[in-house]
Nucleic acid binder design. Sequence first.
DNA 1: GTCTATACGGCGATAGAC
DNA 2: GTCTATCGCCGTATAGAC
Lengths: 199, 199
Amino acid sequence: MTDSKPAAGASARPSRGGKRERLASAAARVFHQQGVERTTLSDIATAADVPLGNVYYYFKTKDQLVGAAIGSHLDGLRAATGELDRLPAPADRLKALIGGWIDQRETAARFGCPFGTLATELDKREDGLDRAAAEVMRALITWVEGQFEQMGRGADAHDLAIAFVAAYQGMAVLTNVLRDPEVMSVQGRRLADWVDTLA
Amino acid sequence: MTDSKPAAGASARPSRGGKRERLASAAARVFHQQGVERTTLSDIATAADVPLGNVYYYFKTKDQLVGAAIGSHLDGLRAATGELDRLPAPADRLKALIGGWIDQRETAARFGCPFGTLATELDKREDGLDRAAAEVMRALITWVEGQFEQMGRGADAHDLAIAFVAAYQGMAVLTNVLRDPEVMSVQGRRLADWVDTLA
DNA sequence: GTCTATACGGCGATAGAC
DNA sequence: GTCTATCGCCGTATAGAC
């Protein structure tokens, strides 16, 4: 009854076995591949290996599942930047981030940026979900901004961070639309070179 | 009976009054604001001021309406580049294009790039619609590439064109997600400055 | 060619047995 | 806490009168 493992997620509902989180990450994955609107709860249940009817025990509505998927992306972002923070030089952290994006180029070619495409889809709506997505994007921008500050660009760190993230989102869109992973490789190298000019 | 005005669209079905084209451009507009999946045929019929049942006389399926919306975007692109081609200097044409995007910043803040968000949404699907969208994107890239060639960058004109369009798509995504038109202004100026360094 | 009424299917959500 | 059966709505698409 008294439960254990609240888990390190954005939300902290208990429930042993991590079924809730399995659903959340499955939702994030399937939403990425199919889009939110074309994904049925049945799709997610299948992907998470949870019986359909049981989904409603953990998430009362589909929108709550979307919210959980956003939280899942935030967790992933925190984990990734946490790793990058172990590198000594901020410019290297940014370039390692780009390297990670390039490594994911095949996925990006087929489905786009996992978070960017989700945020874009949610932005067509009026409910609070779009704002939740904006927070995650802002978290990334803030982290990048911190790197530029450490590189001695205190004055325009914010605009540089926007430019950096925008560059990634843009190359992800074209990689996806053109179905060409090479776009990510070439443009990613371009972005890395730009970081070097600022170091 | 014998009909007139095939109209200058991508497709060329007749039918007086331009009802078909009114439906196509209404579709493009509503798809932009609501996304394809959340838009019903009733929404489009209302926007075009055409009775719902009558829509099926012009478009047998919703997908055909999506195709027509893509065609509508292509028409708009051709019209825009046609205007820009009247400017003497290629660098000025690119900067004028950016200026147009900045002028649309309020719309971009609310709904994103009219074509980029559509292409992104269609890319989650497997039917041919995504490829049709890719063609429009490619048409823009090709036109931009031509400008860079005229600026004497024959060697890397293609990569520069990809970078240019990606920069726009990226700033559009962030403008939209952050709901901040200023992002488009600031980053648009950045992009224009970059064009100047290549001129 | 125009428009209304309606069939059909799918999906989100609920009831309730276990 | 788990799972099945099912309801009710909504959106695409069609039939067919005008």
